[in-house]
């Protein structure tokens, strides 16, 4: 059930250059949301910015009645968001999307590139809470842009990092670092979730059969409504029933989580 509600900003803090963490009090959404879901958020009265913006949920805290959003300041909407402070209100539509379904037992791996780490935190927390082993892999351009490393460490058996400048992980691809861990530690890996890099998502496809896990990607798209009405946020998904061999699915409603092997890259 989707809701359209006001939320109150509890805090907003800068966590890295151009990355902010927004803590919002909104008990109904915090109670209903599942890891992998997202909200549409509007934090401005300006009528020239017509649409709300989609944001994944970094943390879902039903007991505190809060949700947390980790975001990158990239355009006019996020610049406006960054100007809001404690006590101010935002408009929220959600929770949207299907979210993820964790395996019953075993281990999962999370591969996040840049801001792609954001939705993985809620997954890590839920998985740890359910007794699963979590292996987290983070990459970014440089050290200061690795997001949530400390938080991930709380929920993960291991956090592996890599930066393009080679200071972390020798600048290696996260998929290669994942293979290293699998070979060395043989975790009972059931599911892998990735966000923030098409290259990483594609790189997981051949590893699935070899290591016996299923990989999912959390896709990002520009959205108008986030609720399935506008049909604007589609991605190509394999569909043998169609003559073209694919059909368009809505990232907002059919995803944002898709098996990497089903997406036409």
């Amino acid at each position: 059930m989707l809701m359209y509600l006001q939320g109150k900003i509890v805090t907003q803090k800068v966590v890295a250059p151009e990355y902010n963490l927004l803590v919002i009090e909104q008990p109904a959404i915090a109670k209903a949301a599942q890891p992998g879901q997202f909200v549409m958020l509007k934090a401005w009265e300006r009528r020239d910015l017509v649409l709300p913006r989609p944001f994944s949920l970094y943390r879902i805290l039903p007991r505190e009645g809060q949700i947390q959003i980790l975001y990158k300041i990239r355009g006019q909407g996020t610049a406006e968001m960054a100007r809001r402070g404690a006590g101010e209100e935002v408009e929220l539509i959600g929770p949207s999307g299907k979210g993820i379904t964790l395996p019953a037992t075993g281990a999962i791996a999370l591969l996040g590139r840049g801001i792609g780490a954001a939705p993985l935190m809620a997954i890590a927390e839920a998985a740890k809470g359910q007794g699963l082993e979590v292996y987290t892999f983070l990459s970014a351009r440089e050290r200061s842009l690795l997001l949530g490393e400390e938080d991930f460490a709380r929920y993960s058996r291991r956090v592996v990092t890599s930066t393009d400048d080679g200071q972390e992980g020798g600048g290696r691809l996260l998929t290669d670092l994942l293979v290293d861990i699998i070979e060395k530690e043989s975790p009972s890996l059931q599911r892998v979730y990735t966000c923030g890099s098409r290259r990483l998502a594609r790189g997981l496809i051949p590893l699935q059969a070899r290591y016996g896990f299923i990989a999912y990607v959390l896709l990002e798209e520009h959205m108008a409504c986030g609720t399935g009405a506008c049909k604007g946020c589609v991605c190509k998904v394999k569909d043998p029933a169609r003559p073209e061999g694919y059909s368009y699915q809505k990232v907002c409603q059919d995803g944002a989580v898709f098996p990497v092997g089903e997406v036409v890259w």
Binding site: R47, D48, V50, H222, G232, C233, V234, R242, S247
Partner: peptide, 23 residues
């Protein structure tokens, strides 16, 4: 009819450009 290839949306000043293509 599947509609147009993405990207289908672009926000402009006070407006929205769409090329959804009537799926």
């Amino acid at each position: 009819w599947p509609g147009n290839a993405p990207p289908r949306l672009h926000e402009t000043t006070g407006g929205l450009l769409n090329a959804v293509g009537i799926p």
